[in-house]
Design a protein around this nucleic acid. Structure first.
Lengths: 283, 283
DNA sequence: ATATATCGGTGTACGCCATAAACAAGAAGG
DNA sequence: CCTTCTTGTTTATGGCGTACACCGATATAT
């Protein structure tokens, strides 16, 4: 005997992974509810999404939704998967992991521009649907080819994912504030004279201010994405180096991994190679 | 004639930067309200913070708070500044920018462990108080000494700030979910068999799963912090490099040891040199 | 054919939330 | 004394998620 369908995550899984019915019936359907909910959230953000509004948009009562959806939380899960959509096919298996990952991230960024509320989803127990998983799988597969350890692959994808979400969140908050107040972000902060009057005693802030650092800011998404990817790339390079040392070195005994082509490596590192050379020469 | 104090950010500035009254009076005070609010938020998160609860904790009616605070939003601003506190003095002007910045970030991380709701604050128009600005000033000053452009300094600090907030947010969400449901995160996700049953057809996920990548995950904060700082460091090195060439490896950015004589080295290692060669050749 | 169960949808109700507006009592100042 | 300001209370508005009882229609079992 189960207490309540709203508390049953397995039911959520069933809904997310349901077989879609092709024909659209005239009545209230899960798909129609999800579509309507996405429209509401697109227009008013996740905070502006309420069961009432969704029901009104469909011409039903609020509680009728609960016949098809266990509750608001599950509805958000369904909305996310619907909004993400299937990942677009990759043009070809070309390019290194970095440009491939970058296009993935930018696609995610684009989706979040269409559905800004995606970044507003809070909570760590949201079930992934088929589309979420497909995106996840693709990103993982791209980074999995770099030679990073499995846990590192996962952590890297988590990092970029969170980064995109965080940036998207800022975007949506700016937009909402501007819409609700009618004052642009620049205008609003520009009018905070009573605050700036107190900042004169902070030397660095003053310096950066006078140097124009606040007037012509870096694009936060572009800047952050470059830094994060650089950080990951550095890790990949470091792993490459250590892996080269790791299969069968003639000098130090550490194993060296052989590359597919080229002259087979005898030493784990340039250092060992050099040491061996000196040893040969000195007799 | 101003319409409403709640809509007046300048009033918020006044409150945040007010002179603290030394003696604590017996009546309802702004400081007492803020303290009580912080206690509530510490216990129940920012979502659990309501004007009612704060008032009840102080033994007043809800509306009495509005005599001292313009509204909930402003109260959050005040809470943040109170919770941040003054930045602890730096032990000495020692170390490079990176370890100094890292300790700063870790301090921020610590504060967020004491006051997890700090990461839950949404919105881009939250006024900084004296403590927020002091922290900001310090971080900026650390990165300002690296030779980055002013806008880059600001963007870098924004990036790490957002990173810490995002990670803290995850922490607090996990904690809340565990507290409200009584089920630990691992337990909950471990019980999602109906989900995992569908993941078999995703090769990378399956591979990473079987390789144990999900069982022994990287610490997301440590991993992300390292990557982000690496990314910033790489930018710093590149900027250094453009100033006087051949200080850093042209490929990976690691410092290059120059020998006293001979042709100056462009790469930090044979590995990087070779990778650069391959990159040149492949275009 | 009749009884029973299930499904889709409705209406009401409860307990939360922020805060606007009017009001009351005391302190302060003219 | 009268006015005005400060501080706190009361009342009310409009929003939210969702539990629960109910109702007609349909499907199933007897």
């Amino acid at each position: 005997m189960r207490r309540n369908r709203a508390d049953d995550p397995d039911h959520g899984v069933e809904l997310l992974w349901r077989e879609r019915d092709d024909g659209s019936r005239p009545a209230l359907t899960l798909d129609r509810i999800v579509r309507a909910a996405v429209e509401v959230a697109d227009a008013e953000g996740l905070a502006g999404l309420s069961m009432r509004k969704v029901a009104e948009r469909l011409g039903f009562t609020t509680m009728s939704l609960y016949r098809h959806v266990p509750g608001r939380e599950h509805l958000v899960d369904l909305m996310r998967d619907a909004a993400l959509g299937e990942p677009p096919p990759e043009p070809a298996a070309k390019g290194g992991w970095r440009p491939r990952l970058e296009t993935c991230v930018r696609q995610g960024w684009e989706v979040r521009r269409r559905h800004p509320w995606l970044g507003e989803i809070r909570g760590t127990r949201h079930l992934p649907g088929p589309n979420s998983v497909a995106h996840y799988e693709r990103m993982l597969s791209i980074v999995a080819g770099t030679g990073l350890a499995p846990a590192e692959v996962i952590a890297a994808i988590e990092l970029v994912g969170r980064f995109v979400d965080a940036e998207a969140q800022v975007l949506v908050e700016v937009a909402r504030a501007e819409r609700s107040s009618g004052v642009s972000e620049q205008e609003w902060w520009g009018a905070r004279d009573s605050l700036y009057a107190r900042l004169g005693s902070y030397p660095t802030i003053t310096y950066l201010w006078e140097a124009g650092g606040f007037d012509e800011p870096e694009d936060p998404f572009e800047f952050g994405l470059a830094r994060v990817l650089d950080g990951i790339e550095l890790l990949v390079r470091r792993r490459d180096e250590t892996r080269d040392e790791s299969l069968a070195c003639q000098l130090c005994g550490n194993p060296v991994e052989q590359s597919a082509s080229g002259r087979p490596r005898a030493y784990c590192s340039r250092a060992c190679q050099q040491r061996a050379y000196r040893k040969r020469r000195s007799g």
